[in-house]
């Protein structure tokens, strides 16, 4: 089954301790919904707010903050196994981060070609 990285974006700084009660409650139900739609969460993590991020450029140039300055930041990610993109997108649409003004990006994982 194809695997996808699902990047969860939230308005900066994306603090997991400050998500809305509605989002928190919906998150409880999410894993069951993923299974129900035919997907499987392989692994997933939430990140500390982007104010705790440090970017390293060109091998040694260190700056405070996320790699790309934007209104939205990656607040977490998970690896999703799904039969195809339609199922993965159905699962992505149900991700409750939209309740807090966020969204997700779905990207297939890279598999090195055989040989």
């Amino acid at each position: 089954m194809p695997q996808y990285g699902v990047l969860v974006y939230m308005p900066a700084p994306g603090d997991p301790m400050k998500i809305s009660p509605a989002y928190e409650e919906a998150l409880e139900r999410y894993p069951a919904q993923v299974e129900e739609l035919g997907g499987r969460g392989v692994a997933g993590y939430a990140l500390q707010p982007s104010t705790t991020a440090t970017a390293v450029r060109g091998g040694d140039f260190v700056t405070d903050g996320p790699f790309i300055e934007a209104k939205e930041v990656v607040a977490g990610f998970f690896i999703l196994e799904a039969p195809d993109l339609d199922v993965a997108l159905k699962i992505a649409k149900l991700n409750p981060v939209h309740l807090d003004g966020g969204g997700v990006e779905v990207r297939p994982l890279f598999e090195p070609p055989a040989e």
Binding site: Y4, P83, D84, D86, R107, P108
Partner: peptide, 14 residues
């Protein structure tokens, strides 16, 4: 091919 876009007619809901 990479994102596994399915070769399928969408179901009634979609």
């Amino acid at each position: 091919s990479a994102a596994a876009i399915p070769y399928r007619v969408p179901d009634a809901g979609e």
